[in-house]
Simulated scan of single mutants.
Amino acid sequence: MKMIDAHIHLDQYQNKEIELMLKGSNSIEALLSVSFDLESCKRNLQLSRKYQKVKPAFGFHPEQKLLTEDELNRLIEWMLQHRTEMMAVGEVGLPYYLRRDQQVSSLQYGQYIEQLETFMEMAKKWDKPIVLHAVYDDAPIVCDLLEKHSVSKAHFHWFKGDEKTVMRMIENGYYISVTPEIVYKEKIQKLVHTYPLEQIMVETDGPWPFEGPFSGNMTHPDMMKKSISMIAKIKNLSETEASERLLENTKTFYII
């Protein structure tokens, strides 16, 4: 079973963990390693130069303090310089959890939206996919922005949202990826039942930890085998067929 982890924060693992992960599993064909900030971008670039399987995405995770204008300009300039080695713009999006916890004001939220639009404009200009952190109430807003900027190659990772938004995403051709949470969370199983297989990928979002059968274990791409098994069951396919189609989806989307 060959697999691609469509969303992992590889730079947040220890060097020894990364080496074991990449050399210890024959099933991992590639890892799409997303970035948290400029330093994260730099480390992911280094990892991609060291390991052929690592495919880096550069961006700024929204669940943190806004970048200043100077910081954003520095990040954009760095991304511009390294765009030929960049698989995608990401991880970018909107701060749902910060806003839920009342750590983001309405004014600041507007600034997060402006920042996200900047990243969308870059993705469009450079013809790169965009990797999105956009869940629940933020998802329809992000769909509006994608449509506004004519960005069609969008990947909503670990998506959670309402049925109306799900149907809109399907119609627009946006992709989703599911984490090992699908093994024990009914809402994710329902999402996969609804979403077309050809627009689905698998991910770990590692090193984020998981519960259920994964409780207490370091998050590893091999966990996706159980995700694929559940997807196969939901879609009434063999595990081999499901894994082959998920692999092809990811290769096609990210041009791997």
Rank of each mutant, 00 (worst) to 15 (best):
T84E: 11
K251N: 02
A6E: 07
Y254P: 07
S25P: 00
M218P: 12
Q115F: 07
E181Q: 10
G93K: 11
N249T: 05
P221G: 02
E85D: 15
D138F: 11
E71C: 10
K65P: 10
E77T: 15
K225Q: 13
G161A: 12
E71L: 05
S215G: 02
E91D: 14
G173H: 04
R74D: 15
K125C: 04
L45K: 08
S238R: 05
S152T: 12
E211I: 01
K187N: 09
M223V: 06
V92A: 15
E248A: 09
M218C: 07
P62W: 03
N26Q: 10
L31E: 08
K42Q: 14
S25C: 09
S229N: 06
L67C: 02
E171D: 08
K226D: 13
K128A: 07
P196G: 04
W78K: 12
D222C: 10
E71R: 04
K23W: 04
E91K: 14
L94H: 15
L145W: 00
H82M: 10
E181D: 13
M79Q: 15
L98K: 15
N26A: 11
I256C: 13
I8C: 13
P207E: 03
Q14R: 10
T118L: 03
F36T: 13
R43H: 07
E203V: 08
D101A: 14
D222E: 11
M3Q: 05
V104Y: 12
S229Y: 01
F214M: 01
Y175T: 06
L146N: 00
P180D: 05
V178I: 13
G212N: 02
F159G: 04
H7A: 09
S227E: 03
Y175C: 07
E186L: 06
V183W: 05
I18D: 08
M223E: 09
H149C: 03
H7C: 11
E147P: 00
G173W: 11
Q46L: 04
I255L: 06
L247N: 05
H7L: 11
L32G: 01
Q115A: 03
V166E: 12
V192F: 06
E198K: 10
K55D: 01
P213M: 06
T179K: 01
Y184I: 02
Q103Y: 09
Q81G: 03
N44V: 05
K160L: 12
P140Q: 04
P62M: 08
I141E: 12
Y112Q: 09
G161Y: 11
N217E: 13
K16V: 13
I200N: 04
K190V: 03
Y195Q: 01
M224S: 04
Y195E: 00
T204M: 05
